[in-house]
Each structure stands twice: as structure tokens, then as C-alpha cells.
Amino acid sequence: MSDPASGIRRILLALSGAGDELAWIDAAADLAAALEAELSALFVEDIDLLRASRLPSMWEMGRHSAQLRQMQADNTVRLLRAAARRSEQALHRAAEARRLRYSFRILQGKPLDTLLAQAGSLDLVLLVRRATVVTAQPRPLVVLFDGSMTAAATLAVGLRLARTSGRPCLVLVLAADVETYRERVQQAGWAVGGGAEVSMQRLFDADPAALAIAVNRLRAAALVLPADYAEGDLARLDALRSRLRCDLLLVT
């Protein structure tokens, strides 16, 4: 059942069989448990990779061994399916342990595009950078409040996450001028409600480089971002993601 406070009904996690994805599943499951939301994993078979594997004389170089081996379509499909199976089993275990509702789907396409295409209203898209590390002094959760349509919902999700994980919540209020800043602080205050303690900081510019610098300086555990930020511009989201040193959560 979705949490009325956060309004998030589903958490979307994209998997593609590359990297430390099994750790991401646990992180996503924790998040879903905290928000009492459904966990939906999408295993995206990279269409470019499938296509490339059908090319003659296609070679793959091992990530750690640096050894070359010929890549064939059948092999690639088998590898992807094996990776998908592992991910599904890991998801099952994580969900069972937390009594979560979950779903697992295998799709073909470009990972980020596919993921965002699958996100509906009040979904939280999780773009994990690395497994969360528990430290003595919890890193803050940073929320971008940009005055967009989903900004209030994003802030509610951020607050909820911060409370459940015992982290401070820090709101970056995007405002080019003082007037806008005041206005958005007021909006954010309404969204937060009485009693909650949040810190707010002004952010002058939300382009990927500036936003990443601000978030990295705050040593954030995660950045909670309204999906409007990437509306129609996946390259912008990709650029931000590559610069961030924390997880990225998109609230659609």
C-alpha cells in the first residue's frame, strides 16, 4: 500500500546486467519498504548490445581480465538472460524478506529511455550509483525544489525518506532571484508542513554541472529530483548522473 505522506506508489529500478546491480536491488528494496511502495524492476536488454552481438567478428573485452573473446548473438542473449535470472532471484529474496509487493519485467531498448518511458505518475525512479554505506554521521538527503509540478511531491518523498533513514533533509531551492527564492521557500514550507525540520539552501542554477557540484559538496547520500528536470532531455539527466557521487531518485 502506498504511503499517503509520500504519495509514491511504485519504485522503479532499471537493471541491465552490468555492474553491481545486485547491491542496488537491496538498496531499492529498503527504499520501497520505507515508503511502503511496490518495487518494480525492469531488466532492460540493451538493444545496441543485442544488435552489435549479431555483427560478424564482434569481440568483447573482459572488465577485469582485459581478455578478448568473440561475442556472438546467442552468447550475448544467454548472458543477459542469466543476468536477468540472477537479478530476479535477488529481487525475490529482497522482497520476501521485507514483505514487499514487487514485479520484474524484461524489456528491450535503451536502458534510461526505457526506464523513463515506463515511469508513470507518482513513481520513484531509482538511478543507483553505488550501494549505500552506513556511516557514523549520516549523509544528508538532498531534495531539489524547483517549483515544478512535481516539486511538492518530490519534497514529500524526500522528507519521508530522510525520516525513515534517520538522515537530515536538505532542500536546494532553485531560484535565480530573491523574489523567486522567497516564494519557493514559502511553497516548500507549505509542502513540508508544521513540525518538520529541514534546511534550505538557495541554488542559482540547476544545470547538471552546477547541481552536481552543489550536491557533491553537501556529501549527499542521494539526490531526490522531480522528473520534470529531465523532461524531454535525457542527455541532461545523463550528464547529471555521471557527475553525481550519490544515488539519484526521480519522482515522476
Binding site: 546486467g17 568483447e60 543477459l80 542469466a82
Partner: peptide, 23 residues
Amino acid sequence: IALLRTPSGFGLAPERNGEVLGP
């Protein structure tokens, strides 16, 4: 040439206009 991430490493494939060429 596009640099692709495979489940166990990297692959290189010809591309055109941001799309990997099919066979």
C-alpha cells in the same frame, strides 16, 4: 564506433547517428 557495456565487460561496434549498425 560505439563503446558498449556488456554483462562482463566492454564491446566495440560500428554506429551511425548514435545507433549501432545491425548486421
